[in-house]
Computed example of a mutant assay.
Amino acid sequence: MEYGTIISRTIVIYIVILLVFRFMGKREIGELSVVDFVISIMLAELAVLSIENVSVPLARQITPMLILMVIQISLAYISLKSRKLRKLIDGSPSVIIRNGKIDEKEMRKQRYNFDDLLLQLRQKDVRYMSDVEFAILEPSGDLSIIKKEEGKEQNPSAVSYLPLPLILDGRVQNDHLKEIGRNQLWLRQELRKLGYRDVKKISYCSLDRNDQLFIDLIDE
């Protein structure tokens, strides 16, 4: 009887965990943030306890899982509206290599050593450090690589910009403007030249390789 109960509880918990992750979205299945990782560990622990502790009603043990799901979905929804909360929950990417130069200070800040850097460069099929224009350590711990463009070595004075959003969800990102050596006045002047006067109508804006603004309007 006990084996039958364990088998049935295992099947039920498996279905519940599967549904919970499906409801939390595809983001949970891919690269996990710190919060996602904590939620995953807690769900795993609750699942094990639910299967092993057959004396406690299954409904009572499933309830904490559903509460975690509601918390995660609520945080995800609120973070869509609030960049500050999104930054607090997910963290911010860190630029480890900028314009072909390694930022040792940022590496120390992130407790990230050269062995970690070289390992992740090899995993990205990067043979030579000199091929890298930008390397960004994402909040998930993954390293994103932007290689130098062809002809960059022949023209080292050519400026490359980190592909950061200058406008996000209708809000100017002043810290990103500072990263590329520009200010809000320059951005608004460039937008007016292109016929855009209301920043709040812009969903996403960034500077491409040709110093041209890429603009995407909200709900268009």
Rank of each mutant, 00 (worst) to 15 (best):
M1E: 13
E2L: 11
Y3R: 01
T5E: 15
T5W: 03
I6M: 12
I6L: 15
I6V: 15
I7Y: 10
T10Q: 05
Y14L: 14
V16Y: 06
V16E: 10
V16I: 15
I17E: 02
V20M: 11
M24P: 04
K26A: 08
V34P: 02
V34N: 05
V38T: 14
V38A: 13
V38R: 01
M42D: 00
M42T: 14
A44G: 15
L46R: 05
A47M: 13
S50F: 03
I51A: 03
V54E: 12
V54N: 10
V56A: 11
P57I: 06
A59C: 03
R60L: 12
Q61A: 10
I62A: 05
M69R: 03
M69S: 09
A76N: 08
Y77K: 14
I78G: 04
S82W: 04
R83M: 09
R86T: 02
R86D: 10
K87F: 08
D90A: 14
D90L: 07
G91F: 05
G91I: 15
N99W: 06
K105D: 10
K105H: 11
R111A: 09
R111M: 12
N113C: 08
N113Y: 06
D115M: 12
L118E: 10
L119R: 09
Q120P: 03
Q120E: 09
R122V: 04
R122S: 10
Q123G: 11
K124A: 15
M129P: 03
V132I: 14
E133R: 00
I136T: 04
P139I: 12
S140P: 05
G141S: 06
G141M: 08
D142S: 13
L143N: 05
L143I: 11
S144K: 04
S144L: 07
I145H: 02
I145K: 04
K147Q: 07
E149Q: 12
E149R: 14
K152F: 10
N155A: 12
N155I: 11
N155R: 13
V159H: 01
Y161V: 10
P163M: 01
P163E: 00
L164R: 06
L164C: 09
L166Q: 02
Q173N: 11
L177W: 02
L177V: 00
K178T: 04
E179M: 06
I180V: 07
R182F: 03
N183Y: 02
Q184I: 07
L185E: 13
W186T: 01
W186N: 09
L187M: 05
R188P: 06
L191I: 00
G195R: 11
Y196H: 13
R197I: 01
R197F: 13
D198S: 11
S203C: 09
C205K: 08
L207A: 02
L207E: 03
D208T: 01
R209F: 10
R209S: 15
Q212P: 06
L213W: 05
